[in-house]
Nucleic acid binder design. Sequence first.
RNA 1: GGUGGAGUGGCCGAGAGGCGAGGCUCGGGACUGCAAAUCCCGCUACACGGGUUCAAAUCCCGUCUCCACCUCCA
Length: 461
Amino acid sequence: MSSLRLYDTATREIRDFTPIKPGEVSMYVCGATVQAAPHVGHIRSGVNFDILRRWLMASGFNVTFIRNVTDIDDKILHKAVHEEIPWWAVAMKYERAFADAYQALNVLPPTYEPRATGHITQMIELMETLIKNGSAYAPGNGDVYLEVRKLKSYLTLSNQKLDDLLPAGDADETYKRDPRDFALWKAAKPGDPSWPTPWGPGRPGWHLECSAMAHAYLGADFDIHGGGLDLIFPHHENEIAQSQAAGYGFAKLWMHNAWVTTSGEKMSKSLGNSLQVMEVIKRVRGIELRWYLGSAHYRSMLEFSFEALDESATAFRRIENFLKRAEEVAGDIHTVIADEFAAVMNDDLSVPQGLALISEWLRNGNTALTSGDKSEIAKNASHIRGALIILGCDPFDPAFGEGSGADLTSAVDALIALLLEQREAARARKDFAAADSIRDRITAMGISIEDTPQGPRWSIN
RNA sequence: GGUGGAGUGGCCGAGAGGCGAGGCUCGGGACUGCAAAUCCCGCUACACGGGUUCAAAUCCCGUCUCCACCUCCA
């Protein structure tokens, strides 16, 4: 069997993945800055890395998955003023909104989900290390900066030259030794929340938290660091700078997911609420949104449209419908990871090629359903289900359960069966007017009737 | 200005030197009492101009268009 290869942003090539510790994978993904409800672009990142995680687990690795929550930053403070609630209430409100969205799309909870404000101690320790070894300085105004000119290497991830950069501009320039130096820590402004430090009260700069938390939970060296494309610079560059200046090896492999675009452009909040996750799942189910977001390769832009979303949902329902019929005819569907599927997933998570395989199994499975070939039905269904589990779209996953409605299924089944018996009787005596009348009335209840080689079956629309 | 990415059939979306991914839509057919579902067939594309090659969507040169990052960003 093939082994996993992944694209590394740092080297810009697909490389063999070899974990630091055999059988173990440590990964850190930059999560949300909780200052607004998540839109479909945010959740795509969650879905993409969830697919990676599921694939690693299915490949036999024990995965430690850390995804942080940035619960303090400028936007959160601004929002607090705007919404007239405390900054921590803003953070909690949107952290919950993200959690709800992750859950709705069946994104597995991380092994641990550290918050920035819970790791001030680790950040101070890191800054002390950096100041002590001469990599960082505290000019006396309460800020702490990393001195980028002192770094052995910088900007290796984004492949830029220091002299081509525009000044960082995230703090008062007058205290910086170089305009490109960036803030590890920001002095408190009047009215802002702050934490005490040896350099005065203040709050974390954006980048420091990830270095501190990755170190706290994964150690000096870990396997994979992920996030959105837009984090490459400055966020990930600065994480590397801080961590390596402190003597950590840091991430061995960098992965970045592409955006969801609209009209070819990166999604932005100016589009309003219509593309918020919770709005979109009023139109399609969570599992269908997940299928759509996961269907493009993670490094390709996904051009969002409601038309494409609807089509994608329809395509998913075909697969789901086959699995349900297969279960009815052939019994419980085992999950099998087909070798072909493993091969495409091992090739930098080539999900779109996996979908082509699913299409093939679907066609074969439907053909088998028509001919009644149970072993062929079971085989194709189990391959499909094995793939869907990796994609996080298994229709039988209780995470997507039909809730209390499931309890009614057997009762409805008995009622519909009664009606179908009458319809079958009418058909048998060629009284098609009566038969169609029964079907029409069932349809009017929102239930579809299909005649299959195994007899009629019903499903709720 | 610097860095990175993209342009594929009506639409979505893979591929990255050689037998036309796949899906959706549309047209035709099979099955069916009729539907629905399903299956089969059809619609032969790679921004533009050169070049390399027996062979290019894929490599090289040039051009155009679009996007992103360099300021918060999944």
